[in-house]
Design a binder for these strands. Structure first.
Lengths: 113, 113
DNA sequence: GCGTTATATACGCGTCAAGGAATATGACCG
DNA sequence: CGGTCATATTCCTTGACGCGTATATAACGC
């Protein structure tokens, strides 16, 4: 089960926006500030939350701090989600199982009705 | 992108517990109250949030209301998660854990650095 | 109808998180 | 060493959320 901090971090739309930004590529705080239209302190605080949830890592580049996504927690989210896939796989079974082929997906335990 | 209400709903640990309970099987409010140890009104309020997020559906059975999971929103979460899968697939690879190269892995869009 | 069971809503309270303004820290450049 | 840029932190206010108690609604059995 993902840590509570992970959910709390992703519960905020601004933070999800930041995460989406960082999915494209790592960015400095200034870029993030400009991209999501928040004030710099607010952005810094959101980044702190994301940092403490383990979602992002910082690389210090001179005065700039470049934030990048850390895949771990999102993978944990995916793992949390795994048991629920049986739910809609059941209904979309006709479409085939090609929705996802992650190699580490252990077949969820017996989801029968 | 999943609705904000979905994230808000899942941000609460009790609500995630309820969702997990409903994954096993649909349950009445009374069962949920007993299972997660909250007061009945609190549970009802959490169920309301889950309902408004579309995560659960209610079936009225006499005086009882049986709640069941709705796969839709969780599928939406999975869809939101999809772009991020490339991240940890890539990072596992970068760590040198050559997972037999997964020759059949359909690389989703744009994996740039 | 009445009482009982099952669930929902209203109200009040405490806590927590978000946002802005101001300020602090820290690294670069001269 | 002083100035400046980039980022973090602090203080404060405000609004949302969660909980519990008490109450309302609705369906059942008699």
């Amino acid at each position: 089960m993902p840590d509570a901090a992970l959910w709390t971090a992703l519960a905020d739309p601004h933070r999800r926006a930041i995460v989406a930004l960082l999915l494209e590529r790592p960015r400095s705080v200034g870029e993030i500030v400009e991209a999501c239209g928040l004030s710099q302190p607010s952005t810094s605080k959101h980044l702190k939350v994301l940092r403490e949830a383990g979602l992002v890592r910082v690389r210090q580049d001179a005065q700039r701090r470049v934030y990048a996504l850390d895949p771990g927690p999102i993978a944990a989210l995916d793992a949390w989600l795994a048991p629920y896939r049986a739910l809609w796989n059941k209904s979309l079974d006709a479409l085939g199982r090609r929705l996802d082929e992650t190699p580490d997906t252990p077949e969820p335990p017996a989801a029968k009705d």
